[in-house]
């Protein structure tokens, strides 16, 4: 544990040291002091840490931060020009491989899939459109058929109604004529019967009158004469009633 602690403190010291080398002097100093204070407050091994930090700072100042390759002035590995050819070479290799694979395989593949899907959707939409127009046409035909059937039905109904009406009228006409004729005949008959009855009544009246005259007065009047008298009297009452 003790060794681990020292290692960790060493690690911290290294980071502190490298901050100092990497950044401008005053700012880095402030950072170092801040870290030192924080460590001091919280740690039992504060003095050790400060010592280690101071030691590391001194060491870092000597080393200049260079670790792997030599020849970097600021201690930044990025400025080590000896690694440039290798990085450039491998970057070119990586870029060339990626470009080749992407432009020859991956990208056409993806665009092919996307296009295929687009076409599929397009054709599906077209089919849907066609089906819709088909359905609409069918609906139209149905509507038209329904309309014509309705028209025909109405026409037939009308025809039948008219036919029935005409027939009924005709029958009513014949019936009326027939009945009128019958009524006329009956009326004539009735009139004749009435005339007859009236005549009979006159005869009866004349007979009664002559009989009465024979019995009351003792004369035997001519029956024909009595009839004329009754008729005349009847004519008088008729005129009066009128």
């Amino acid at each position: 544990m003790k060794r681990f602690n020292t290692l960790c403190i060493g690690i911290a010291a290294w980071s502190v040291a490298s901050i100092q080398t990497a950044f401008a002097e005053t700012e880095a100093h402030d950072a170092v002091h801040a870290v030192e204070h924080a460590v001091e407050d919280m740690a039992v091994h504060a003095e050790e840490a400060v010592e280690a930090a101071a030691h590391a700072v001194a060491e870092a100042a000597h080393h200049g931060g260079g670790h792997g390759h030599e020849g970097s002035s600021a201690g930044l590995p990025q400025l080590d020009a000896s690694t440039f050819p290798s990085q450039l070479f491998w970057l070119c290799v990586a870029f060339a491989i990626l470009y080749f694979i992407f432009s020859k395989k991956s990208l056409p593949e993806i665009s092919g899939v996307l296009e295929n899907r687009q076409n599929h959707i397009q054709s599906d939409l077209e089919t849907a459109e066609k089906l819709k127009s088909d359905a609409e046409a069918a609906h139209d035909t149905y509507e038209k058929g329904l309309q014509s059937a309705r028209d025909e039905a109405a026409k037939t109904l009308n025809d039948v109604q008219e036919k029935i009406k005409a027939k009924a009228e005709k029958q009513a006409d014949t019936f009326r004529q027939k009945t009128e004729k019958e009524i006329l005949a009956l009326e004539e008959k009735l009139f004749a019967a009435k005339e007859n009855a009236l005549d009979d009544m006159n005869t009866i009246a004349a007979e009664i009158a002559s009989e009465a005259a024979k019995k009351i007065v003792g004369i035997n009047p001519d029956i024909e004469q009595a009839k004329t008298v009754v008729k005349a009297l009847n004519g008088n009452t008729k005129a009066k009633a009128a």
């Binding site: 060493g10 490298s18 690694t83 290798s86």
Partner: peptide
């Protein structure tokens, strides 16, 4: 490891040179 700049150090994995140029396969190339 604790040097924050150490992570940027190029370490050769398969060192080789072509025409006097160091084209080593490094951690960067990896």
């Amino acid at each position: 490891m604790a040097d924050p700049l150490h992570q940027f150090v190029i370490e050769p994995i398969v060192p080789f040179e072509i025409g006097g140029m160091d084209l080593s396969f490094t951690n960067s190339s990896l």
